[in-house]
Design a protein around this nucleic acid. Structure first.
Lengths: 142, 142
DNA sequence: TTACATCCTCTAGCTACTGTAGGTTCAAGC
DNA sequence: GCTTGAACCTACAGTAGCTAGAGGATGTAA
């Protein structure tokens, strides 16, 4: 049986994050010692590893909830899991495209800055006048 | 003079966002009508455009605060603005690298999914076992 | 004058955690 | 058996950057 601290170390998670996942129902309520401390088994270790790995791949907690549910029902069709992954891939690709446009624009700003006074700073000038931008960057690049 | 709604439309901002910027001191307190409604001039329009443009380029509100301050002092050196932009460029490039790793991994997951039952779904399998990943993706790809 | 779009303040909610305060439990060493 | 100190507990507040809603006041055109 693992303490919450050991589980945290094994999965690269903070203790508070594990308690948070329990609170929002992503992790089950574990057994407790007589004194009220949480104790975890292998099933919980696997589940938390799954969650953390999916987070590292950028899945939202809601998406992870769905994936966990699918994982709990081996008889269900794989199509749903596939759809969730494809959706995530699409999001990643959209963000990549946005970030690439940002990089282009930022690079240009930095390159053109000649290092004088702010009165004729290219960086500030470009920020002041959107029409100087060559690329589109409508959405905020989160 | 512009109402808050008109200013919002001209800059592609939500009305609430403008009030929020005022609240956190990013936008100045504007003049008011007798009835207490906000009225804006061209200076505010320029300032908000600057803010929104910087946001589109991914700058944080704190960074924007610094940039605005520099923009208000034309005699200061350009070096600071340049440093802020370079820092932002670096962040964008780091995020790009992370997202590219994620894309690789997600593509592989999706490609290998053969569409059967979840019991032998590649997507879920990869999530269960990190060691199946070819690329590194330590940080959460935000 | 009346209708109604737009404005006002205030508060709460979103994601996904992270940090802190103030107190309790566990396990090792003596 | 007793002490010590690390790790645990709950509860609540805070982070970024907005966004939404309630409930009421204002502005403007017909």
């Amino acid at each position: 049986m693992l303490t919450i601290g050991t589980l945290a170390k094994k999965t690269g998670t903070k203790v508070q994050t594990i308690r948070y996942y329990e609170q929002i129902g992503l992790m089950p309520e574990p057994g407790r010692t007589e004194g009220g401390q949480r104790r975890y088994g292998d099933a919980e270790l696997d589940r938390l590893s799954f969650v953390r790995h999916a987070r590292q791949l950028g899945f939202s907690l809601d998406a992870i909830r769905e994936l966990l549910d699918l994982s709990d029902h081996p008889d269900k069709s794989c199509a749903e899991a596939d759809a969730i992954a494809r959706r995530q891939l699409k999001q990643v690709e959209q963000r990549l495209a946005r970030l690439e446009a940002l990089r282009t624009e930022l690079k240009r700003m930095v390159r053109e800055c000649s290092g004088g006074q702010t009165s004729d700073c290219r960086v500030l000038e470009v920020l002041r006048d959107h029409s100087e931008c060559l690329t589109e960057h409508q959405d905020i690049g989160a």
